[in-house]
Amino acid sequence: MRQRPLWLLAPGGALMILVILLPLGLAGWISTIDLDQYTLRRWVQAPFIGLGNYTESLGSGLLHSIWISVSFAVLSTLATIPIGIAAALVTQNAYRGRALVRAVFLIPYVLPSFVVATVWRTMLQPDGVVNNWLGADGSLWLSGPRSYWALILVEIWAAWPFIYLMALAALQSVDHEVHEASAVDGATWWPKLTRVVLPYLRGPVLLACLLATLNHINNFTLPFVLFGAPAPDDVNVMPMLVYVTSFQSLRFGLSAAMAVVSLIIIAIPLFAYLRAVRLDVHEEGGRR
């Protein structure tokens, strides 16, 4: 094989170092120093405390927050998959008004998170419309145990169109011949859907699951606007905890340690997932 011109990757590589590796390294370093409002001004001289921030972060509710974040993210993703795929199937074939339906489906995704959260916050008030509909006057959605389900509910409402978009894109890529072939073979709609169409969706939807879960975990605006800071313990998700630690308690070292710990804890299952589902769409396409 001819020598490939790998040096062409240099600009991209340099940018990656600058944009990803340097800040990551900096975060790693900050997590080992006692950086707070007292030492911020001479931050280079802030005292080195080794793993001190890490031990403190484990003792200050971080694991609880990671658990809430991960479970909330996984549940939200699981709930959005059937909705997203069903919506994609409904808008796959042409019919009158399809463009309108497609546009309407995108509304939750297009609205800024801040707006979504503000509207839901109003609706979920103790004397708000949601309780009026349910006839459960005065029940709490924004505090206490139910706030966790309120967070998931709103996240599902705001995030399902992402799965829908990915599934729709995958459906568009199903070759016309495949539809014809299954028609010739006399396949009815159900076997056609489960044996022919859905396998095409596997790659893109698995990728969408990954991206959606990461988006849920990183969502700060939604819980912040819905519940405010300090958040109720039931929805003290990781971004909220890190926010309060850095911007209200001003413990930058501690919050950096929290971020690093969560990165590691989330990276492990992520890696396992990537290995398990082998998201190499091209390879799969080649085999087909």
Binding site: P126, G138, L140, S143, G144, P145, G228, P230, A231, P232, D233
Partner: peptide, 8 residues
């Protein structure tokens, strides 16, 4: 914040 459920 944490007492609101009891309060309610």
């Amino acid at each position: 914040v944490q007492s609101i459920p009891d309060l309610s």
